[in-house]
Amino acid sequence: MNILFTCVGRRTYLLKYFKEQLKGEGLIVGTDMQLSAPALSVADIAEQVPSVYAENYVDVVLDICLKHNVRALICLNDLELPILSANEAQFALIGVVLIVSSQQIIDICFDKYKTAKYILSLGLRTPKTIVDYNEAVKAIKVGELSFPLVLKPRWGSGSIGIEFVDDLDEMEVVYNLLHKKVKKTILSTVSQGNDYILIQEKISGPEYGLDIINDLKGNNVAVSVKRKLAMRAGETDKAITVDNADIRNIGRIIGTSIRHIGNLDCDILERDGQYYVLELNPRFGGGYPFSYEAGVNLPKAIIEWLKGNEINSSILQPQYGRMFAKCDNVVEIVLK
């Protein structure tokens, strides 16, 4: 069973996890725009691809799937998710299972304003979020919104463009600057209209990362919760698994309602004992390694599901109180 990972970047750990669970019964194929991407050093087969926005991108990936007899494809890039999802039928025709959610689900998660509205529709809490600048100013003046505030791209990825402001003068300057900055980043390709900067209530308190796990039919099967201890470049750098039934229940509500495929990375903030859902990312996130190392063996589950087998739910339950930290290591790049 050969599995293709696209846009692998630096995610060496994820390819290693799947290779461990394949146990020699399949190959790991990796793609990236640059053959020097660190994670390609782990792949059994490395292929260079054009930008996800290139006209021939999907055709190139389809050819790679045929060339290497790929059984399943896992996408690791926010910007690529809607492109692959829109072409799911083409992959199905050649027998490739896309472990990617529907376009509707991806749209809800990628558009942070839609995310906020969706979370509220589930009866859950989320930071107050406004997309219109003038509306935000009015809310501040009548006391419905207070500083400090967070400004960030509506269609965002990682920590690109996130800013904190403490007063109206600073907010005006940063808002206008972000408008210009976003247009100079890769996010310009997905930002729509003029309202592509969000103004959001800042929640201060403990932060948690969830792996909300659904099977390949969209049924929720598990939720793993970690308390974040440190962040680096928008990703969790240190974390500890925790036993928190309230947060797990929030994850179950989201997973059961949205019916994503595979993993959904979710961020939650705590303030005064209340939990606020911040973001949803329908893919493996930077916090998943902390779950895997604590016993959440989603790679094995996915492989078994692809074989048509049932799993023992215990393989998706973490050991609580396990603390881990990421560290850099150097890998040799061998260009073939």
Rank of each mutant, 00 (worst) to 15 (best):
R125P: 00
L35I: 11
D169R: 08
T189N: 11
I186D: 07
W305Y: 15
L178R: 07
V334M: 11
D166Y: 14
Y292V: 01
V29M: 02
R227D: 03
V225C: 12
Y118M: 10
N219M: 05
I130M: 13
K138Y: 12
K128S: 04
K238C: 14
I162G: 05
L79C: 08
N220I: 13
C109S: 10
K202S: 13
V190I: 14
I74M: 04
L15R: 02
A54M: 07
A37N: 08
V174K: 03
V182S: 01
K217T: 10
S257H: 11
A39D: 00
I64E: 06
Y13L: 08
G143K: 10
L81I: 05
R125M: 10
V131M: 06
M231I: 04
A325M: 14
E207N: 09
D111N: 15
E270A: 10
A230S: 15
T126H: 10
L280F: 13
G218M: 12
D215Y: 04
R271L: 08
V221T: 12
Y118E: 07
D215I: 05
V58A: 06
R252T: 13
V61P: 07
R154E: 01
Q21G: 06
S41Q: 05
V29N: 01
A245W: 02
Y53D: 06
Y275Q: 04
R259P: 00
D243M: 07
E55Y: 09
D32A: 09
I240V: 15
K336G: 14
I268G: 03
L76S: 02
S146F: 00
S204L: 13
G193Q: 10
D169Y: 06
G308H: 09
I186A: 08
L84S: 03
Q103I: 13
I162R: 07
L335W: 04
D272M: 05
I268C: 09
C7N: 14
F324P: 05
D107E: 15
F284Q: 00
F110D: 02
G193F: 06
Q90W: 03
V137N: 01
S51T: 13
N309K: 15
V131T: 09
L149S: 00
I64K: 03
T115K: 01
V334Q: 11
A325F: 09
I28W: 07
E25H: 12
N214C: 14
L298D: 00
D272L: 08
E20D: 15
